[in-house]
Design a protein around this nucleic acid. Structure first.
Lengths: 254, 254
DNA sequence: CGTATACTTGAATTGAGTCAATAAGTGTGG
DNA sequence: CCACACTTATTGACTCAATTCAAGTATACG
């Protein structure tokens, strides 16, 4: 089996736009889109204010890089808007996307001196940034906060193990079907179901996420259309006509 | 590409042997093999005693199952001796080994109602078992304990992401070389280097860990012997003659 | 010491990749 | 508003790495 080659160059200007706490919605955090999901969800209002006073808000345009694999690490991020793309590279340019993080996710915790993946903006992003030291203080003072961070971390671990199963043992069709099913689930938790679903990532992103080539991803997509499972109004929109069939295809029963 | 098929049946008797705290070494935990690595490492002696009073010690023979994927979850485990094998199955029997956990690892934390992998004994095992409720109490009372649990969890996450890169983008030879290098590193942290290294797992385990077939694993092994990188005194012993070459093979430079 | 299990190796097959050509969007500026 | 350039997606023809199938050989164990 040959290996996907997606060479990624460093863009000229990776610097994100940073602003202080001031520009956040009036009652800070009150109007936050991930108020219910994020690690800070169970903090009392006054504690939330204390946390908010420590964070800086970060905005990032599409494809801008937050940090590169190998950069010195020290900050923790909480996604409030948009989707973060995490990826790793091999020396010869082969890329593996390790995750697409929706709002409510945190990343960058972990105690390595350098980041072990690149984080960039799949869609326009808004993040809360705080330092590991600040995280540590909060873990100290608010056990429930720590519990929620641990819960997020173990959720990520669970997802990673599912991805390991997918990458190690599933066929191309099963991989794509699983990806679409999961994306559908995630979206319908927020969006309205039934309508066309937006796929913000490119075929290359999907291929690098599933350990395939773009050609194969494309072929499987058209195959699913032929089967009547999907419609593709455009390259970045999917209508799942038969969620039941899609589900069957995520895992052959033999 | 076809998919590895390793059908796994439920053995008749999966029940582990459990004993109370009583049978532990005299000053409990004092003589524990993972005293320095485990989550409990930084607890003060009296806190350690409190923790020890809560845990039950579990012993497991080779290939005995601790719990199955899908079993109701509720306990957390700390490996003190031996190696735990974690694996997941697809409906048709394809297996993916998601990890081999050495002493000092914890697993089973995470807040799902059921376990999302099977845990069994790759080698004779000794574990500390405690409930999630007890873990929670400890997180509440000892922030430093919580920090160490989080550090373990993020270490596992990092390892999982490395495995995702390996499964998604590496060739068979790169996969096997990476596996051997990592195993060597891990062992030399404990064992004496230079001598024959024990590989307790079968070729099937390795194949299911690397997303390959046993035939391919076997062929790559003999290939590495031909290259002068390895010697294989027996199927479960490796001597790494050229660690430098092995390292080069973990990732093609193009 | 025989029987089951695990490992190796060869031959043939195949799923997914590479390479390459077209098609379809997406902008940008005249 | 259209023409040009550029990127992204689809599709076909061919290739190849890893699989399956099938012996044959070691190894372990009761």
């Amino acid at each position: 089996m040959a290996i996907g080659l997606t060479r990624v160059e460093r863009p000229a200007c990776p610097s994100p736009v940073t602003t202080g706490p001031a520009d956040a919605p009036d009652g800070p955090c009150r109007a936050c889109a991930v108020r219910r999901d994020a690690v800070c969800a169970t903090l009392a209002p006054q504690d939330l204010n204390r946390l908010f006073a420590m964070v800086s808000r970060v905005s990032l345009e599409v494809d801008r890089v937050l940090f590169y694999e190998g950069d010195p690490a020290g900050d923790v991020y909480n996604v409030t808007d948009g989707i973060v793309r995490l990826s790793k590279l091999l020396a010869d340019g082969r890329r593996q996307v390790t995750g697409f993080l929706p709002p409510g996710s945190i990343f960058g915790f972990g105690s390595t001196a350098v980041h072990c993946y690149t984080a960039d903006a799949l869609t326009p992003l808004k993040l809360c940034r705080f330092s590991r030291v600040q995280l540590d203080d909060f873990l100290q003072d608010f056990p429930d906060f720590g519990r929620r961070v641990l819960a997020k971390a173990s959720g990520e671990l669970r997802a990673a193990q599912d991805q390991i199963l997918l990458l190690g043992r599933k066929s191309a069709q099963e991989k794509v079907a699983t990806f679409l099913r999961d994306w559908l689930r995630e979206a319908s938790a927020l969006d309205v179901a039934g309508r066309a679903l937006e796929l913000p990532m490119t075929r290359t992103d999907i291929a690098d996420y599933l350990g395939l080539s773009t050609a194969t991803v494309s072929r499987v997509f058209t195959g699913l259309v032929r089967l009547g499972v999907l419609e593709l109004p455009s390259a970045h929109e999917v209508v799942v006509r038969r969620p039941d069939l899609l589900d069957d295809l995520t895992e052959a029963t033999n």
